[in-house]
Simulated assay, not measured.
Amino acid sequence: MAAISIGAVRSRTRPRFRRRNVSATLALVPLALVVLFVYLGCMFWTVRLSFSSSKLLPVQDWVGFSQYSRLFANDRFTVSAANLVIFGILFIAGCLVLGFLLAVFIDQRVRAEGTFRTIFLFPHAMSFVVTGLAWQWFLNPTLGLQKLVRDVGFESFTFDWIVNQQMVIYTLVIAGVWQASGLIMAILLAGLRGIDEDLWKASRIDGIPTWRVYLSVVIPLIGPMIVTATVLLSVQVVKLYDLVVAMTRGGPGIASEVPAKFVMDHLFERNNIGLATSAATMMLIVVVSVLAPWIYARYIRVQERRT
């Protein structure tokens, strides 16, 4: 009787589960259509326009790679690409180092831990526009840090990086690291809190220096969190636009120009859709080259190991 009753219950619940699965699938259909026709459609249309001679309005002719030849011969784009490389390396390295140090500090069970976490995360709650404006005022030689120090009595003090063509890109790095390191702290802190306390006890018994434990044990254990943080930061680097516009407007001259600003300027101000979409396509290639290894390591490789 028990076996019959269990079989009857299972037979009754199976149609319910099937109806739920069908309902969930139908609910996801609009989202799938949006992804296919809006995101992917716009992406392929952008790539298609990069092979056309579109100016003010899009046209459907075919000019091959002529837009890409013009793009790489454009000094403004080469400067913006070089700036993006400099910014990306320093920004990612700075955020990872500072975020890790902040996470280690918080992981020591300090007093007022919640207050410190709020303070460190607060910059990330601000938009890049607000961050850019705040740092623009702070680094302005006639209003900010330089004037403040000189008013104190150090008349020879000079910190004019924001108006110096050779140094302006580093001011963007400073502002970006200040804004994003709190997020990295939160990600790495979650990894640190997941490490078994027995590892620390064993290291203390063996007399292993703390820095060696972090270098040889802790960092490899939180490796997946570091990779995730690096991917998130890399995407922010490629999308860098609003911080530059708010802080330097690409100046002095084109010293702090970045590819996203190049795209927006040629798309809406210079009325050159073909050149703008070719630059946007190059940015897409960079994003795919960053995301593809991470997706493979995070999902595809894991599934292959399980099978």
Rank of each mutant, 00 (worst) to 15 (best):
E197F: 10
F159K: 05
I92R: 03
D196R: 00
N140Y: 03
F105D: 15
Y170V: 00
W178F: 04
H266I: 08
R70L: 15
Q67C: 12
R305K: 11
V104C: 11
Y299I: 10
V263K: 02
K55C: 09
D265A: 06
T25D: 07
R193Q: 14
L148G: 08
E197V: 09
E113P: 03
G223I: 09
A125H: 03
N272I: 05
V245C: 00
S66P: 08
A202W: 00
F138M: 15
P293F: 05
G191W: 01
L40V: 11
S216Q: 08
T142M: 12
V288K: 07
K55D: 13
S234Y: 01
V59A: 15
T131S: 06
D206S: 12
F128S: 03
V163W: 04
A3N: 07
T228S: 11
A93Q: 12
W62D: 07
P30C: 10
A3R: 10
F87K: 06
R12I: 15
G114S: 11
Y296N: 08
A93C: 14
R111V: 10
L96W: 13
T131C: 08
A180K: 08
V227A: 15
S50N: 05
V168P: 03
G251K: 00
R19W: 08
N74S: 12
I219R: 02
F154S: 15
A186F: 07
L56D: 15
A93N: 11
G182M: 01
R10W: 15
V244F: 00
R193A: 12
L145P: 03
A125Q: 06
A125S: 11
F37R: 09
T171Y: 00
D206C: 06
S5H: 13
R14L: 14
L192Y: 00
S181V: 02
F105Y: 15
S256M: 02
P141R: 00
R10H: 13
I254A: 07
V218W: 02
V288W: 10
W45M: 11
L215D: 03
S52M: 04
V238K: 10
L98A: 12
L31E: 09
R16K: 06
R19E: 13
I92C: 03
L56G: 15
L90S: 10
Y39G: 09
R14P: 04
Y214P: 07
T277P: 15
I162E: 04
F128H: 01
M185G: 03
N272H: 06
P141V: 00
A93S: 14
